[in-house]
């Protein structure tokens, strides 16, 4: 048992964790608005029966709804993956496994964001 009065090594400081913490709070509140709005439009104003390809295609005809969905996609993907990153930091102690888990997480998160953005930006309605 070392009791020589020495402190532990000075913790690594950086502003990243502060902004990550702040982002979780702000994105949480924003998602509450955007997600509830989304649910309200898709399930309460419009009955589920009318939500089909044409409905979505018409909705995405306006930049407003594409932006709405892009914001929702970014907030959800970043909020979720940042939460998982913190869990991995907490629970996976072996350095090797932590690197593996974080790599998988980052690939998935970037994949979801890129895939979703690709559809949002390049979607062209086809009459059916």
């Amino acid at each position: 048992m070392a009791t020589n009065g020495a402190g532990r090594p000075r913790p690594r400081g950086s502003g990243f964790e502060l902004y990550s913490w702040l982002f979780m709070r702000i994105s949480g509140v924003l998602m509450l608005i955007f997600l509830l709005g989304h649910l309200y439009i898709m399930h309460i104003i419009n009955s589920v029966e009318v939500v089909n390809y044409n409905f979505v295609a018409a909705r995405w005809g306006t930049p407003l709804w594409r932006t709405w969905d892009l914001i929702l996609l970014l907030l959800a993907a970043l909020h979720g993956s940042n939460g998982l990153r913190i869990l991995i930091d907490d629970y996976i102690h072996s350095h090797g496994w932590r690197v593996v888990a974080l790599a998988v997480l980052y690939v998935l998160a970037i994949g979801f964001i890129l895939g979703g953005s690709l559809v949002l930006f390049t979607f062209q309605p086809v009459a059916s």
């Binding site: 690594r12 400081g13 502060l18 913490w21």
Partner: peptide
């Protein structure tokens, strides 16, 4: 505050 702003500080 710098020490506590680190990865192993208050954000845990």
């Amino acid at each position: 505050l710098d020490i506590l702003a680190s990865r192993d500080g208050v954000w845990r």
